[in-house]
Every structure is written in structure tokens, then in C-alpha cells.
Simulated scan of single mutants.
Amino acid sequence: LNVDDCKPNPCQNGGTCHDLVDNFQCSCPPGTLGYICEINIDDCRPGACHNNGTCIDKVGGFECKCLPGFVGPRCEGDINECLSNPCSTPGTLDCVQLVNDYHCNCKAGFMGRHCESKVNFCATSPCQNGGICTTIHAGHRCTCQDGFYGTNCEFSGYDCDSDPCQNGGICSISEEGGYHCDCLVGTTGTNCEIDSLNECNSNPCKHPEAICQDKLGDYACFCPSKHTGKNCDIYDR
């Protein structure tokens, strides 16, 4: 009499038992080994789960536990948080998908997580010298008191009153603020205070014995006897 050695089933992990004469044989499912299929092969090889998902070994396979923001059998899918249209306020330019998050790019003049707040550009009181601040689309505008100008009323319109330009320079109010000196030839600097040209380099004194002295924007010729004129070019008998 042949006893059924497969009762109860000695094969583990879902193996199929085949009764033999005074013995049995197990047909093991994929991912298992051993006489009675007792060895479960670890299917969690490196890189089995993407995007830092956690691999859980199963019989003949594995399961991935995904981090928030990822889906799929191997966590290969990045959830697009922008599909729910979180950046829907009028101040939003567009939505940028991030990992398990999103970012709203705001139009000029708006701020906040969802660009829901208008920026108060006058909150820091940018207008100086009594200027009145008005918020505009993407910034502010200052209405200046008499005598002041500039983006923030920071410049005085009377900067030329002190006659700052030297050596014949002409003072004018600059559009960028403050004043500007238009210097005569041979002078330079903020206030035309620098002699930028040696007028003697061109040898203006005509007599070979004349001595040239450089001056600010000018020169002087010291002429030998019986020679006169600006350039010692006149012979006086």
C-alpha cells in the first residue's frame, strides 16, 4: 500500500507536491529554491524601486512602498501636483511641478504661496523728502515736493546753486539726479578740477628758446628778448 506522502503538503511557499513511492517531490514556484521550496530568493535587487521607494520582498516577486509624490509598481511615476490647478488666482503666471510639491510663479506685483496677495510697494516708504508714494502695476511712483526729483525724490533740484564746477565748467541738472559739469577742453573730473591735458606737448611756443608753462586748460610762453605774442611768434625790433 503506497502512502500519500503529499498529505499534508510538505512543500512551502506555494510549492506543488508530487507523491512518489515512499517519497515526494516539490515543484517550486518562481523565486523559491530547496527540497521543499523553503528558500525564498530575495527579489529586491538594487534599483528595483525607483525614486527611493522601499522594496518589500515577496515570493517570486517584490512590492514597492513609494514615497509621497510617487506612484506606480516601481514608484516610477511622479505625481503632477499642478494638475489640480492649485495656482489659479489672477496673480499667477504659471505652475511648476516639484517632487511631492508645486510652486506658483507670480506675475509682477503679486506674492504669496498661490500669488494671492498684491505687493504693497509703498509699505517701506521709499519716497524721500516728503514725496507721496502710489502703488502701480509692478512698483511704485513718487510724487515729489517742489525742489526734489528722482525715482524716490532723493535729489535736490538746486545742486547747482553752490556753483560747484571749477575752471569755467558749466553746471546743469542731471536726469539721473544731482548735477553735471560740462568741462572746458583740458579739464576733467566731477567738478572740472583736474588738468587732463598738457598743452605744452604740442610745442605751441614758436621760438626755439621760448619756455612753455602748462596751465589748467591753457599754457603760457616765456619768450626770449625781442619776441612777443601768445606763442612768441612776433619779432619786436
Rank of each mutant, 00 (worst) to 15 (best):
D19W: 08
C37K: 03
C26Q: 03
T124V: 02
G217K: 10
P90A: 05
T32G: 15
H103C: 02
G112E: 01
E76Q: 15
N9F: 06
P46S: 14
Y179R: 00
S172L: 10
G217D: 08
G14A: 09
D4M: 08
D195T: 02
G47R: 13
D236F: 12
Q213T: 11
C82W: 08
T151P: 03
H137E: 14
C144L: 04
Q166F: 10
K65Y: 07
V71A: 14
C181H: 11
S117I: 11
P224F: 13
K65Q: 10
S88A: 13
Y35P: 00
C28M: 07
E81A: 15
R237I: 12
K215Q: 15
C122P: 04
P46L: 14
I56R: 04
V96F: 07
C127P: 00
E116V: 00
Q166W: 07
G217Q: 09
I173N: 04
I170R: 14
C17E: 02
G15C: 10
G157A: 01
P204N: 08
F70N: 03
E63L: 09
N120H: 08
D5G: 04
R237P: 06
D22E: 10
Y102R: 15
E63T: 00
C115K: 07
G112V: 02
E63I: 01
C153G: 01
Q97G: 05
V119S: 00
G131M: 09
D182V: 05
E209R: 11
D218V: 01
F24Q: 05
R74S: 14
F62V: 04
R74Y: 01
S162W: 01
G72V: 03
T92A: 15
G60V: 04
R141L: 15
G31V: 01
G139K: 05
C142F: 03
C11I: 02
D94I: 09
D163N: 15
L197F: 14
C28A: 10
S125F: 08
S196C: 13
P224Q: 13
T188C: 15
F70P: 01
Q145Y: 04
P30M: 00
C212N: 05
T134R: 12
C212F: 09
G178M: 11
Q128W: 02
F62A: 03
E154C: 07
C115F: 09
C133W: 09
S27V: 12
T92P: 04
C221W: 09
I56L: 00
G34N: 05
C232M: 08
T151C: 02
C181T: 06
V96S: 06
D218Y: 13
N100R: 00
T187M: 14
A138P: 06
C232Q: 11
L20K: 13
Q12T: 06
V185C: 05
S84R: 01
G150E: 00
R237E: 14
T151N: 09
S88M: 04
R141H: 15
T151H: 11
T32R: 12
T32W: 13
C106R: 03
G112L: 13
H227Q: 13
T143W: 07
K215G: 15
N9I: 06
N40R: 06
C153Q: 03
T187C: 12
T228W: 09
H227D: 07
L33S: 11
H137Y: 11
C205Q: 06
S27Y: 06
C6G: 02
G186D: 07
S202Y: 07
S162H: 03
G139F: 12
K65H: 14
S196K: 06
N85D: 10
C37H: 07
C106N: 08
S88F: 01
G147D: 11
P73M: 02
D146K: 00
